[in-house]
Lab assay of single mutants.
Amino acid sequence: SEEEIREAFRVFDKDGNGYISAADLRHVMTNLGEKLTDEEVDEMIREADIDGDGQVNYEDFVQMMTA
């Protein structure tokens, strides 16, 4: 549901600035027990970053979650 997606976005957007940065993503993945290299984190950001601004905004996140 849209509310679940919004809630998930809030979990990833640690600093609440409306964007998921590589640092935000790394933090959440580490908490989930996933040890990722910087390259892996950057690749995840690139794949999710639809508009190419280097971070994942809510619209990018929705597209990723509903793809």
Results as ranks from 00 to 15, higher is better:
residue 58 Y to T: 02
residue 15 D to C: 05
residue 61 F to R: 00
residue 20 I to E: 00
residue 3 E to C: 13
residue 6 R to Q: 03
residue 33 G to I: 11
residue 28 V to D: 00
residue 41 V to N: 02
residue 42 D to C: 07
residue 13 D to A: 01
residue 20 I to K: 00
residue 38 D to E: 12
residue 54 G to K: 04
residue 48 A to C: 14
residue 18 G to Q: 01
residue 51 D to H: 13
residue 14 K to V: 10
residue 30 T to K: 14
residue 39 E to A: 12
residue 66 T to V: 12
residue 11 V to Y: 08
residue 36 L to H: 08
residue 26 R to L: 06
residue 47 E to F: 15
residue 49 D to G: 15
residue 23 A to E: 13
residue 44 M to Q: 02
residue 44 M to D: 01
residue 5 I to P: 00
residue 21 S to E: 05
residue 17 N to A: 06
residue 37 T to V: 04
residue 33 G to P: 06
residue 12 F to V: 04
residue 48 A to L: 15
residue 39 E to M: 10
residue 63 Q to K: 15
residue 5 I to K: 02
residue 15 D to N: 13
residue 5 I to C: 04
residue 29 M to V: 09
residue 42 D to W: 11
residue 30 T to N: 11
residue 2 E to V: 14
residue 39 E to H: 10
residue 46 R to A: 09
residue 5 I to V: 07
residue 67 A to V: 08
residue 30 T to L: 14
residue 65 M to E: 01
residue 51 D to R: 14
residue 3 E to V: 09
residue 26 R to A: 05
residue 19 Y to I: 05
residue 7 E to L: 07
residue 60 D to V: 15
residue 12 F to G: 01
residue 36 L to S: 03
residue 35 K to I: 11
residue 56 V to Y: 08
residue 39 E to T: 10
residue 53 D to K: 12
residue 11 V to P: 07
residue 19 Y to L: 08
residue 62 V to H: 03
residue 24 D to E: 08
residue 25 L to V: 10
residue 55 Q to E: 06
residue 46 R to C: 06
residue 57 N to A: 13
residue 2 E to N: 09
residue 26 R to Y: 06
residue 57 N to H: 13
residue 18 G to S: 02
residue 43 E to D: 11
residue 64 M to H: 13
residue 38 D to P: 13
residue 54 G to A: 05
residue 21 S to H: 06
residue 22 A to F: 11
residue 22 A to I: 15
residue 12 F to L: 06
residue 30 T to W: 06
residue 56 V to M: 05
residue 18 G to F: 02
residue 28 V to I: 09
residue 66 T to A: 12
residue 62 V to R: 04
residue 64 M to I: 09
residue 55 Q to G: 05
residue 39 E to V: 08
residue 3 E to G: 08
residue 5 I to M: 11
residue 27 H to W: 13
residue 20 I to C: 03
residue 27 H to L: 14
residue 63 Q to C: 08
residue 17 N to W: 07
residue 58 Y to F: 07
residue 53 D to H: 10
residue 10 R to S: 07
residue 15 D to M: 08
residue 7 E to N: 08
residue 59 E to Y: 06
residue 7 E to R: 10
residue 8 A to I: 05
residue 28 V to M: 03
residue 67 A to W: 01
residue 50 I to H: 11
residue 62 V to L: 15
residue 67 A to I: 07
residue 61 F to H: 01
residue 59 E to V: 07
residue 31 N to K: 14
residue 45 I to L: 13
residue 12 F to I: 04
residue 63 Q to M: 09
residue 34 E to Y: 15
residue 30 T to Q: 12
residue 19 Y to R: 11
residue 41 V to I: 11
residue 37 T to L: 08
residue 53 D to M: 13
residue 12 F to Y: 10
residue 51 D to W: 10
residue 8 A to K: 07
residue 26 R to K: 12
residue 16 G to C: 06
residue 62 V to T: 04
residue 44 M to H: 04
residue 53 D to I: 11
residue 1 S to H: 12
residue 61 F to N: 00
residue 31 N to Q: 13
residue 50 I to Q: 11
residue 7 E to F: 03
residue 65 M to R: 03
residue 41 V to C: 03
residue 20 I to S: 00
residue 51 D to I: 13
residue 28 V to W: 02
residue 6 R to P: 00
residue 10 R to E: 05
residue 54 G to T: 05
residue 64 M to K: 14
residue 10 R to I: 05
residue 47 E to N: 15
residue 31 N to R: 14
residue 25 L to Q: 00
residue 61 F to Q: 00
residue 12 F to E: 01
residue 50 I to A: 11
residue 55 Q to P: 04
residue 4 E to P: 03
residue 19 Y to P: 00
residue 26 R to H: 06
residue 28 V to T: 03
residue 59 E to S: 06
residue 31 N to M: 15
residue 41 V to A: 04
residue 32 L to D: 01
residue 33 G to K: 12
residue 13 D to K: 00
residue 57 N to Q: 12
residue 45 I to R: 03
residue 18 G to E: 01
residue 8 A to R: 10
residue 12 F to N: 02
residue 44 M to N: 01
residue 22 A to L: 15
residue 18 G to N: 03
residue 11 V to H: 11
residue 48 A to M: 13
residue 8 A to T: 03
residue 67 A to N: 13
residue 10 R to Y: 03
residue 34 E to H: 15
residue 35 K to N: 12
residue 56 V to S: 01
residue 5 I to H: 03
residue 62 V to W: 05
residue 27 H to R: 12
residue 46 R to F: 05
residue 32 L to W: 09
residue 45 I to P: 00
residue 55 Q to H: 10
residue 28 V to S: 02
residue 67 A to P: 06
residue 65 M to N: 02
residue 6 R to M: 08
residue 63 Q to A: 08
residue 38 D to T: 11
residue 17 N to P: 00
residue 26 R to W: 06
residue 28 V to C: 02
residue 33 G to A: 10
residue 24 D to R: 02
residue 25 L to E: 00
residue 59 E to M: 08
residue 21 S to C: 06
residue 27 H to F: 11
residue 29 M to S: 01
residue 15 D to P: 02
residue 23 A to H: 09
residue 25 L to D: 00
residue 5 I to L: 11
residue 38 D to H: 09
residue 14 K to T: 11
residue 11 V to T: 09
residue 16 G to F: 05
residue 13 D to C: 02
